[in-house]
């Protein structure tokens, strides 16, 4: 990793592209086998469509979306002899079609000082790491960034964010453990305004979406910062772990209902998890997919791109 980082300019770019591909290749490992098995020297029939559906289910697309996509692909070619690559390409096309409308990188509005971003999600989804990586990216793009350590609950969460502040050069506003998260956010926004900071990233504590009191706490953060800026937060990003299964639906649904989520980041795509649930999420909610996390390094947060993701998902390069 350090080798690629040492290289300048486009060398660095290949580094992350390779990493993303690497991650996605692992992602597609499981999916590739069944598709190849299914469609070598074989006519498309009902059984073949079912197997295609199952391959998609294995990638966490969920039963309904998998069935719909499989049927769509299968029906158009029913009774025809189809090569594995052809079916993969068709699948990738179909999946990319679903994902393209939601592939929207996060771009702060330069007119806002600051552009306030609330980052939320369930425990362990990778919020703090994503905030750190996002800060690095924004600072590299020339923005000034402030981080608000609003996770006052988890032990050492504040310290974790502070280290990210040191790494990226972002200012970190923190308070004592157990302090009121909304008050901290309020202070951070006050300071960011005074200092004319471009982007304020508020890192919140992890919370399971079915804990109503914790969700209310998140709503309180919003209520309180609106006392300063009634248009804030300008974005509310929900961080999803790629290993998550169908519970992602419940996460998006509830967080969206409670705090009006404006976009998603998917983390940990460098594992073997397929993250295919984003396809179903894109269909159902149409929320922008801002970025994907593909590693633990500061550079391992990348814009979400529909076509490479879809092709990677079905095992095409």
């Amino acid at each position: 990793m350090s080798e690629t980082d040492d290289e300048a300019g486009d060398g660095k770019k290949t580094g992350w592209l390779q990493r993303l591909k690497q991650g996605l290749r692992k992602t597609s490992g499981k999916l590739t086998t069944p598709i190849t098995e299914t469609f070598t020297k074989r006519r498309i029939d009902d059984a073949a469509i079912l197997e295609l559906e199952e391959a998609l289910i294995s990638a966490d697309l969920g039963v309904a979306t998998a069935a719909r996509v499989a049927r769509l692909i299968g029906k158009a070619r029913f009774d025809k002899e189809v090569a594995p690559d052809e079916i993969k390409a068709a699948l990738a096309d179909e999946i990319a079609k679903i994902l393209e409308p939601v592939a929207m990188p996060f771009v702060p509005d330069p007119g806002l000082k600051p552009h306030v971003v609330l980052v939320c999600g369930v425990n362990g989804s990778g919020k703090t790491t994503s905030v750190g990586k996002l800060a690095k990216q924004l600072i590299e793009d020339g923005s000034t960034v402030m981080l608000a350590a609003a996770d006052t609950f988890r032990a050492a969460a504040v310290e974790q964010l502070q280290i990210w502040g040191e790494r990226t050069g972002a200012v970190v506003v923190a308070s004592t453990p157990g302090a009121d998260a909304a008050g901290l956010a309020f202070d951070a926004l006050t300071r960011a305004r005074a200092e004319g900071t471009d982007v304020l990233l508020i890192d919140t504590a992890g919370r399971l979406q079915n804990k109503v009191d914790l969700m209310a706490e998140l709503q309180k953060i919003i209520r309180v910062i609106r006392k300063i800026d009634d248009t804030a937060p300008h974005d509310c990003i929900l961080v999803l772990d790629a290993t998550v299964g169908q519970n992602a639906h419940s996460q998006v649904e509830t967080f969206r209902h409670m705090v009006d989520v404006s976009g998603l980041i998917m983390t940990k795509l460098d594992g073997t998890a397929r993250g295919g649930v984003v396809v179903a999420l894109a269909e159902k909610f149409g929320l922008p997919m801002h970025a994907v996390g593909v590693g633990e390094g500061a550079d391992d947060l990348r814009p979400f791109e529909a076509r490479p993701f879809a092709r990677g998902l079905v095992g095409l390069d």
Partner: peptide, 12 residues
């Protein structure tokens, strides 16, 4: 392991 884990749980 997280109870929310999807299909990948088996691999893990």
């Amino acid at each position: 392991t997280d109870a929310m884990t999807g299909q990948d749980a088996a691999n893990i």
